[in-house]
Write a protein that binds this DNA or RNA. Structure first.
Lengths: 201, 201
DNA sequence: CCTACCGATCGGTAGG
DNA sequence: CCTACCGATCGGTAGG
């Protein structure tokens, strides 16, 4: 993203745009975008608030980058599943597993991406909503395909895709690494739920 | 809740605590708790910000009342379902229908209740989280009961109850009165999904 | 129910 | 990377 050598921090130190984003993400997740100050973010990195402006345009830009990265990752994983082929049920399973895995393994990203959409300025919000919509429609397309070949019996692909996506999104709110189920268990189980819901009659 | 005559507004006018809460709810839903000012709320009711303090203790108190009311309604409906009896599958269906119906018919309440939990001061937040937890555990209990009598085959009641609840919560984010499905359709369909997910094997 | 106002916070800039 | 600071916002109170 920058013209500096990959993986290097800026000369001798802790302060790189990537670290700033990480610190910001953690604070946004914990206390909300609006409640987080530039001084908070700087403080997490051992500098004062104004020092961040050498590497970051604005607080809003940090939020935009965090949420965009989240949606782009999700869409990239979905594209991989589509490219790999397989029956509708197979693709649904893989898609739900990737979706849930992401929401469990990147709780803060997912959480901020969902809660702070309205903290985005309207142009950016529109862009993000378009990406979300595309993500949902791709899932819906696979459901419709499965219906066409009688692999699924759901009557309303739109409601089914919302239900499947939303249950996965919820994982970001309750999942804990120290909890009774690990990421793989949850991902597998939710994929089963999705297929069950689609094949029931 | 107050000692004034039920249904009456305070002497000649638009300003009653209930109206203030309604206006606040709408604004909190639209732009977030922290981005909403007392002046905004007053403005929606035709008064200046400071005038609200005659009827309201603080902005925080408005949020507490809104979120508490939401959870209490949800819990009351759940208790009714439990009191009415029926097989686990019947109770699950009714519970999911009530849950979804509430989230579709009271989108703003549900939305604010979910997004602004971290805007509550810690004592209030704890109280609300306890209520949510109780709500979830009651659903889980019914799932476990259904497993005991072999009505359900799910292996993990905890994951199943999270999945069912979270898909219903999602309804508050995408449902529109002008959309292709009405509240009853969505409630019925989601109840089907829940049962499908619980009985699949 | 209003105006005036206090006290505090905050994003971002100036200018080293 | 820092201090000093501007300009603006906001919750809540005083005192009618």
């Amino acid at each position: 993203m920058t013209s500096e050598p990959a993986g290097a921090t800026t000369r001798g130190g802790a302060l790189a745009p990537e670290h700033i984003r990480d610190a910001a993400l953690h604070l946004f997740a914990g206390k909300g975008y609006r409640a987080t100050t530039m001084e908070d973010i700087g403080s997490a990195l051992g500098v004062r608030g104004p020092s961040l402006y050498r590497l970051v345009r604005s607080k809003q830009q940090l939020l935009v980058e965090i949420i965009s990265a989240t949606m782009n990752t999700l869409l990239a994983e979905q594209r991989q599943v589509m490219a790999a082929g397989g029956s509708p049920a197979t693709r649904i399973r893989r898609m739900v597993e990737a979706h849930v895995r992401f929401h469990a393994a990147n709780r803060e990203q997912a959480f901020v991406g969902n809660r702070e959409i309205d903290s985005l300025e309207s142009d950016d919000r529109r862009k993000i909503l378009r990406l979300r919509s595309r993500y949902e429609r791709t899932l819906r397309t696979v459901i419709e395909e499965g219906r066409t070949i009688d692999e699924f019996r759901v009557e309303n692909p739109r409601l089914a895709s919302f239900a499947i996506l939303d249950m996965g999104i919820g994982v970001a709110t309750w999942f804990r690494d120290a909890g009774p189920n690990d990421v793989s268990q949850v991902a597998y189980t939710y994929a089963e739920y999705a297929v069950a819901l689609l094949t029931a009659g």
